[in-house]
Amino acid sequence: KKYKIKVYVKDKKTKKWKKIKEIEVDTKEEALEAIKKLPPNYEVKIVP
């Protein structure tokens, strides 16, 4: 079972969220580790 991490950042001009990358991992633990490495201003969604 794979997890997709969708990473969004808020556009300063439009104030809208835009997706900047998608990370695919195998476990939820890996997903949480990957999220920890991202800057705090990123919004993250984990999709099972």
Rank of each mutant, 00 (worst) to 15 (best):
E33V: 09
K28M: 14
I23E: 02
K4V: 15
I23L: 09
K28G: 04
W17R: 04
V47W: 12
P39M: 10
K16W: 05
L32A: 08
K36G: 10
K18A: 04
K12P: 12
D11N: 11
V9N: 04
K36P: 03
K28W: 15
Y8W: 06
Y8N: 00
V47F: 12
V47T: 11
I35G: 02
I23V: 08
K19N: 03
K18C: 06
I23G: 01
T27R: 03
V7N: 00
P48S: 13
E29H: 06
K28H: 13
Y42Q: 06
W17Q: 02
I20M: 05
K16D: 03
V7R: 00
T14A: 05
E43K: 15
L38E: 02
V25R: 02
Y3G: 00
E43W: 15
K4H: 07
E24S: 12
E24G: 09
P40D: 08
K37S: 13
I5S: 00
V9T: 07
K28F: 15
L38P: 03
Y3P: 00
E33M: 07
K18S: 05
A31V: 14
I46Q: 01
T27N: 10
K18Y: 11
T14K: 09
A31E: 01
E30H: 05
V25Y: 11
K12H: 13
P40I: 08
V47S: 10
P39L: 12
Y8K: 00
K4Y: 08
I5E: 00
A34I: 15
K12G: 10
K16E: 06
P40R: 10
K19H: 04
K12F: 10
K15Y: 02
A31S: 03
I35P: 00
Y42D: 02
K18Q: 08
E33T: 09
K16L: 08
Y3H: 04
K45P: 01
K36M: 09
K28N: 07
K45N: 06
L32S: 06
V25I: 07
V47G: 05
K45R: 15
W17S: 02
K10Y: 15
P48A: 13
V7C: 09
V9I: 12
I23Y: 13
A31W: 08
K28P: 12
T27D: 05
W17L: 07
D26P: 05
K36R: 14
I35V: 10
L38S: 02
K45Y: 13
E30V: 03
K18H: 10
D26S: 14
P40K: 13
I5N: 00
I23D: 02
E33K: 08
I23P: 00
Y8C: 03
K12I: 10
P48Y: 10
E29I: 09
P39C: 06
K45S: 06
D26C: 09
E29A: 10
K6Y: 15
L38F: 13
V44L: 06
V44G: 08
K4C: 09
P40W: 06
I46C: 09
K4P: 00
K36Y: 04
T14I: 03
K2H: 12
L32F: 12
L38R: 01
K28T: 07
L38T: 02
E24L: 13
E33Y: 03
K13L: 13
A34M: 15
V9D: 04
P39Q: 08
K10L: 10
K2N: 08
K4I: 14
I35Q: 03
E43L: 15
D11G: 04
P39T: 06
K15P: 03
K16S: 04
P40N: 12
E24Y: 15
E43D: 09
K19E: 06
K4G: 02
K18F: 08
E33D: 12
K36E: 07
I46Y: 04
E33A: 10
K12C: 07
V44M: 05
P48M: 13
V47Q: 08
L38Q: 03
I46S: 01
K10M: 14
V44W: 14
A34L: 14
E33Q: 12
K37E: 10
V25D: 00
V44K: 03
K6D: 08
K37I: 08
K18I: 14
K36D: 07
K6M: 14
A31T: 04
K37G: 12
K45F: 12
D11K: 05
K19W: 07
V44P: 04
T14H: 05
Y3W: 15
K45D: 06
E43A: 15
V9M: 12
K13R: 12
K10P: 04
A31H: 01
K37T: 10
I46H: 02
K45T: 13
E22I: 06
I46F: 07
T27L: 03
V9Q: 09
V44Q: 02
E22G: 01
K1D: 07
T27F: 04
V47D: 05
K15T: 04
Y42P: 02
L38K: 02
K10W: 15
D11R: 05
N41S: 14
V25G: 01
K1I: 14
I20V: 14
W17P: 02
K1H: 14
P39V: 06
N41F: 14
K4M: 13
T27I: 03
V44N: 01
I23C: 09
K4N: 06
W17N: 02
K21A: 14
K13G: 06
A34H: 12
K18D: 03
I35A: 08
K2R: 13
K45L: 15
V47R: 06
P39D: 10
W17K: 04
K4A: 05
K45Q: 13
K36S: 13
A34G: 02
K21T: 14
K28R: 14
I20A: 03
T27Y: 03
E22D: 06
I35F: 03
K1G: 13
E30Y: 03
K13M: 09
K4T: 14
V7T: 01
E43G: 15
V44T: 09
K37N: 11
K2S: 11
T14L: 05
N41W: 13
T14M: 05
K13C: 10
T27S: 14
E33P: 01
P40A: 11
I20P: 00
V25C: 10
K1Q: 14
Y8E: 00
Y3K: 01
V44R: 02
Y8L: 03
P48H: 13
I46W: 08
K1S: 12
A31L: 13
K1R: 10
K19C: 12
E24F: 14
K45G: 03
I23W: 15
P40E: 07
E29S: 07
I23S: 02
P48Q: 13
L38W: 11
T27M: 02
I23Q: 03
E30N: 04
Y8G: 01
K36Q: 10
V9F: 07
I46L: 10
W17A: 02
V9G: 04
L32G: 04
P40Y: 08
Y42R: 09
E30I: 05
T27G: 08
K6A: 11
K16M: 08
K28D: 04
W17T: 02
K21Q: 14
K13P: 02
